[in-house]
């Protein structure tokens, strides 16, 4: 199981990577490589050049400002897991990151790689969708809902690369988050997953609830909820297309999505109360 031949090159700047990508439509970016390497090994992708972006200065930075939390494309998943600043500013992502793969893959896997790959079961994409993040690319910034188009398919223009993920920061007096998923084995691709953030503003206004579903649907979905109730979640899930595979059919995924959404919501509510 060896890749087809390719040329390996290291980009030192985003501009350089961008130029190389523009010059060669068959070139691919490698970030952490945790998804690309198996695809290369199985010869499911056969790039002419593999552009390593790990050496680009600044791409591995986590920046927390008053309005945004920005993660560079090369931020390793383990860095999210270990970041005290993110646990504070973006607790849902900190919570979800522990569901991504296994410790060794999180040590190499990156934020940008996961986003660009657009696996429907990806927890990072689900959190991005749930919290209304923007995908930053060399071409443009995309709202998450405009970026993820279909399984393994994104709006990333040819020749462009993902450079980061930018989350809005919402001021909150109290915040609760919840994350739940079901997979065949712990750490496997989720058959269904749910992410929830519940925010109480300082002024006692109506709580803001964001509840997203992943794994079950072709792309992660932010549910349009009339109320934080089981019936409302079920109603929001009803029109959604569910995926199926030999492990789980659409019916199971729909029920699991509902159950997990309620678990995540419950967890978030308990955190807010606490």
């Amino acid at each position: 199981m060896k890749p087809a031949p390719f040329e390996y090159i290291r980009a030192e700047t985003v501009l350089q990577a961008q130029e190389w990508l523009a010059a060669d439509p068959e070139a691919r970016v490698i970030a952490g490589g945790q998804t690309l390497m198996p695809m290369l090994a199985m010869r499911l992708v056969r790039p002419t050049r593999v552009i390593d972006i790990a050496g680009i200065a600044g791409l591995d930075e986590i920046a927390v400002t008053a309005d945004h939390v920005t993660l560079g494309a090369m931020v390793r998943q383990v860095a999210v897991e270990r970041s005290a600043a993110l646990a504070q500013a973006l607790p849902l992502l900190s919570k979800a990151i522990r569901f991504v793969g296994h410790p060794p893959t999180r040590r190499r896997g990156t934020i940008g790689g996961s986003v660009a790959n657009a696996d429907p079961a990806a927890e990072i994409a689900l959190v991005a969708m749930t919290l209304g993040a923007e995908v930053l690319t060399t071409a443009d910034a995309f709202a998450a809902r405009d970026f993820f188009l279909a399984p393994m398919t994104t709006a990333l223009p040819a020749g462009a690369m993902v450079t980061g993920l930018r989350f809005p920061r919402v001021a909150a007096a109290r915040r609760g988050t919840g994350f739940a998923e079901v997979a065949m084995r712990q750490g496997d691709y989720a058959m269904a997953a749910a992410a929830c953030e519940l925010v109480l503003g300082a002024g006692g206004e109506v709580p803001s609830l964001r509840l997203g579903i992943g794994g079950a649907t072709p792309v992660p979905v932010l549910l349009d909820l009339a109320a934080p109730t089981r019936d409302a979640v079920a109603a929001a899930l009803a029109p959604l297309e569910m995926m199926h595979d030999p492990n789980a059919g659409a019916g199971y995924r729909r029920r699991a999505a509902l159950a997990l959404a309620m678990q995540a919501l419950d967890e978030a509510q308990r955190e807010v109360m606490a």
């Binding site: 390996y8 490698i30 490589g33 090994a41 390593d52 383990v78 410790p103 060794p104 040590r107 190499r108």
Partner: peptide, 12 residues
Amino acid sequence: EAVRSCLILAAQ
């Protein structure tokens, strides 16, 4: 740090 050596190019 523990990593999978099949998922890393030697060059990386």
